[in-house]
Write a protein that binds this DNA or RNA. Structure first.
Length: 263
DNA sequence: ATGGTTGGCGCCCAA
């Protein structure tokens, strides 16, 4: 089974790119973040015509919004309001795996929770996710946790760990919280499972860099984690870097995880 | 140290 995640930064604006991506890479399951559309206006017909007959989505006007597009049935769909009314989470069961799609708050500019409520929100959001999994799920459940987690946890998940140490997404408090969430539930960081820690890995390049490929000031903000019962099923991970140079791109590129056919 | 760009919406906010 091929599972992908992509912060698409407006699903309606990028239906053409979505069509190109899905027809070329053929993910059976695709999780989107920042759909930026209310449910009444979600482009369900267009997405069904791309082959995704099972779609779960929850959105709001202008901001946030998440969706799961699937070629297999989705059951038990739910969304947690972890903190406020933001539409940042949707989950469902597909082929025996519970898939959790997250859009973690970006956290604003100032990495100080005393003066920046957005940063406080972000830290609390990660703690909330951790608490929820520890209280509601077991480590031997088959779970995929993926999405735009808006944190680059390791030194080589950013272009310069020194220059970004006080930049929201790579501060020590964020990195520690994300790694704590991962380790407390024995989640496997699938991209790092297949690529050693010394190698740079990015999934996001700012719109503000004129020549993003040349400067290559990226960050790995998007993740696909698997619970330990899925370890033997992990086959490969791809980060579709070329997507950043498509016409009218998202600032995030898709990640793809291939799992061995599940029985 | 600063500013750079994008999307959605509506005359600015969030990223």
């Amino acid at each position: 089974m091929r599972i992908a995640t992509w912060n698409i930064n407006s699903v309606r604006l990028r239906l053409g790119l979505l069509e190109n991506f899905t027809s070329f890479f053929q993910p059976e399951v695709l999780c989107l973040q920042e759909t930026k559309v209310q449910d009444a206006f979600f482009p369900i017909k267009e997405i069904e015509s791309m082959g995704y007959k099972h779609v779960a989505y929850i959105g709001q006007k202008s901001y946030n919004g998440v969706a799961i597009l699937s070629k297999y049935p989705i059951t038990g769909v739910f969304s947690c309001d972890f903190y406020n009314q933001d539409r940042r989470h949707i989950a469902g069961l597909i082929n025996g795996i519970e898939i959790h799609n997250f859009y973690v708050p970006a956290g604003g500019d100032e990495p100080d929770e005393k003066i920046n409520p957005k940063f406080k929100h972000k830290l609390e959001y990660i703690k909330f996710i951790q608490k929820w999994f520890l209280e509601n799920r077991k480590k031997d459940d088959k779970i995929i946790l993926l999405g735009d987690l808006n944190i680059a946890p390791h030194a080589n998940d950013v272009w310069s760990t020194k220059q970004l140490k006080n930049v929201v997404s790579h501060t020590l408090v964020e990195r520690d919280l994300l790694i704590s969430l991962q380790e407390s539930f024995n989640f496997i960081d699938s991209a790092r499972y297949f690529t050693n820690m010394e190698e740079k890995l990015y999934s996001w390049w700012s719109y503000r860099n004129k020549d993003w490929r040349k400067s290559d000031r990226g960050r790995r903000l998007d993740h696909i984690w698997a619970s330990s019962p899925l370890e033997e099923k992990l086959r490969s991970v791809q980060i579709i870097k070329d997507a950043r140079s498509w016409s009218k791109p998202s600032d995030h590129v898709p990640l793809i995880l291939d799992l061995q056919q599940l029985d």
